[in-house]
Design a protein around this nucleic acid. Structure first.
Lengths: 263, 263
DNA sequence: TTCGATTTGTTCGTATGTATT
DNA sequence: TAATACATACGAACAAATCGA
């Protein structure tokens, strides 16, 4: 009898001093996911199959999968299976959108009032990376980039002016039409059309005076204090994939964050 | 033979439909920690003892402890034991302090440049809670509070103007002398002197124009765009224990946050 | 509707490795 | 070196969710 073909793409773990088995298993799982062998939403082999393929016990596989679930790379559903996480469902809609309306009593509230913004594209152009974009995206100055400007509205009022830049090489085939016709969020588009999963982001916020352009787009006076958030979105291996500057009119809204802990 | 005295304070888990055993175990551990039976830094009984006391297997205890470790309630050290987390060591210094210097290239940097601020007390007064403080701290308007103002400096330059309010009833014995002579951070003082562990915080940031008072304290022009962060610090059970408004001069510094995931 | 097959979730027990004192 | 405590790994059994026959 010949061994069954390896349809799962998993490789048995090598022996040696590479740390705990469950971390090796985690790396191997991450490797096959990053390889695209299992795209977003795909079902992984069940745990026994993975365990057999890697040559470890099922408990070791579970521990590896546990960590990847916490990192939002995988999703488990009891009775169904383990999936590569899709980042276009409700659970992730607000992972990177933190603007909420403010009123007298919102501060003391436990639960945020979540409303997803209406996004209006204000420009889609191609260009060459400037110094800041190159540093943020870890590409060379002058490399081709796509720049997209958006206006985000909550309850019909413009609140955020977004300007983002991505490396054209990473987002081959991205064009204004596809961008405008995306069925879900921008990060959902990155995943479904370009196989790029945004896992986390670094953000730096500061106060600024509204520029003439931002003032026009948000309908506020030039010089009004606004919140400027610089974001670098990261995928596997903390590779930067998007550089975004969001200018927020905080007259009636806040930038909300929760520090530490979770679950 | 009579059973040994319960010196650990743990109670056996009741049977019934109270969810998974490891969550019951987690709640029981959390209960004894909150009760003060084990203060900050105290060593918990070893895992076998806990398992026997709760009437579950050691693996179940480990799973419960795992979650409490992730939530920064407990700390494990291989070969030594399991401890109630101390929130005054380096690891927690920056859990709630997110202001960093900015330069041309900081955005693309992986690692933050962490400098702990020099804190200068600008006022310590007692008073009665106003509406906002009462709502934030979940006390009644008019209840006694302590209000403390601080100026935080980085590299010798004033950067943050902090105003915080706490319920006097929760922080009995807090006075200006003890506050000024605290050996570590403010949250370290809350823990060591008042048994209150700040586990997490909700923050809302917005842009504002510098008030005359803030302008004076930070040495900036009145009306300069500054970042205003409203924080409610929470302890066990998401109970609010401190309400703080931080006004940040973001001319040379940013408010930094990392979204989603890690470990 | 019921049943059975599949898959993950929980719990137990045991053995061994590694760090600390 | 020995004792202690947490860390890792394995395997087994049953529970709970899901889905289709």
């Amino acid at each position: 009898m010949s061994p069954p073909p390896v349809s799962h793409g998993l490789q048995a773990l090598a022996s040696g001093p590479f740390g705990p088995l469950y971390r090796q298993a985690k790396r191997e799982l991450q490797r096959v996911v990053e390889s695209g062998r299992y795209g977003p939403g795909a079902t992984l082999p069940n745990e026994s199959v993975i365990a057999a393929a890697l040559g470890v016990s099922i408990g070791t596989v579970r521990k590896a999968v546990d960590e990847l679930v916490h990192e939002h790379v995988l999703v488990r559903r009891q009775g169904k299976g383990t999936y590569v996480a899709l980042h276009n469902d409700d659970r992730f809609l607000f992972q990177f959108f933190h603007v909420e309306p403010r009123d007298e009593f919102t501060e003391a509230q436990e639960r945020p009032v979540r409303e997803y913004p209406q996004v209006q594209c204000m420009g889609f152009v191609r260009g060459r990376a400037d110094e800041a974009e190159a540093a943020a995206l870890r590409i060379k100055p002058g490399d081709p980039v796509a720049r997209i400007a958006n206006r985000l509205s909550l309850a019909g009022r413009p609140v955020v002016h977004d300007r983002l830049a991505v490396a054209a090489q990473t987002f081959r085939g991205l064009n204004e039409k596809r961008f405008l016709e995306r069925p879900s969020t921008i990060y959902g588009l990155y995943q479904s059309d370009h196989g790029i999963t945004v896992l986390r982001a670094r953000e730096r916020a500061r106060a600024a005076a509204a520029s003439p352009e931002t003032a026009r787009i948000l309908g506020v006076p030039v010089g009004l204090p606004v919140l400027e958030v610089h974001r670098i979105a990261l995928t596997f291996g903390d590779k930067p994939v998007e550089y975004r500057i969001s200018t927020i009119n905080t007259a009636m809204h806040d930038y909300v964050s929760i520090l530490s802990k979770q679950r």
